[in-house]
């Protein structure tokens, strides 16, 4: 098996074997396939991109073609042990509502998103006077799918407001590496944030 991307490896470590997951915006199914093959984890991936859906089918994964902006109302309460959303939160119309939905249909939620508080993002705006374009957020302002970018502090504020308990947090670089400076000042040095959370 090829080595798993660092962020996906962290998520795999967080997820208990043989649990059931819902992967929102599952992409080409890399995480789902790894979890199924290595940890006996089963569930569904939700995806809207037809090429990625085809990749999931080729991997023999359970994939449901749907638009996450339509919500999760078809799913009953606590249907899953984990609801995972990697690198998709920032592209959703109503991320606050979707996070609440995640904790309605799942016992725990896991999200990853590019940290807009990273020093390079701050530098781009503060000194360059431009919207940041770099590793974790490689798009121009006019073609970005990222309509709700946030920082670690913003996300944690949302969790406090929504009465959500953060169970675990990790930050990595865009190359999915980790370092000491990142652990000390995550909102400044973390490019990609990973959170595991539940209801209080």
């Amino acid at each position: 098996m090829t080595e798993l991307r660092r962020d996906l490896a962290i998520i795999s470590d967080w997820i208990k074997p043989n649990s059931r997951i819902l992967d929102l915006g599952c992409g080409n199914g890399t995480l789902l396939k790894h979890l199924r093959d290595a940890h006996g984890v089963n569930g569904y991936g939700l995806e809207i991109d037809t090429n990625k859906i085809l990749e999931c089918l080729k991997k023999d994964l359970n994939v449901i073609q749907t638009d996450l902006d339509a919500g999760l109302s078809d799913f009953d309460e606590e249907s899953f042990d984990y609801v995972v959303m990697t690198q998709t939160l920032q592209a959703i119309y109503h991320p606050d509502k979707l996070i609440e939905e995640m904790l309605r249909v799942g016992r725990e939620g896991i999200v990853t998103f590019p940290n807009f508080g990273h020093w390079r993002a701050r530098l781009h705006i503060a000194l360059g006077g431009h919207m940041p374009v770099y590793g974790a957020i490689p798009y121009e302002w006019y073609n970005t799918p990222n309509i709700h970018l946030c920082t670690l502090s913003d996300f944690e504020q949302l969790c406090r407001d929504k009465n959500i308990k953060i169970l675990q947090r990790e930050v990595v670089t865009a190359e999915h590496k980790t370092s000491t400076t990142m652990r000390v000042l995550p909102n400044l040095f973390g490019e990609l944030a990973l959170y595991r959370f539940s209801r209080k």
């Binding site: 059931r20 089963n42 569904y44 089918l57 994964l61 359970n62 449901i64 073609q65 078809d74």
Partner: peptide
Amino acid sequence: SKEIVKALHDNDKDFSYIEVE
């Protein structure tokens, strides 16, 4: 079709759902 899809995932069944444009 989504009524069938819901009944399938309510039961944790293995399945995929495709909506062709």
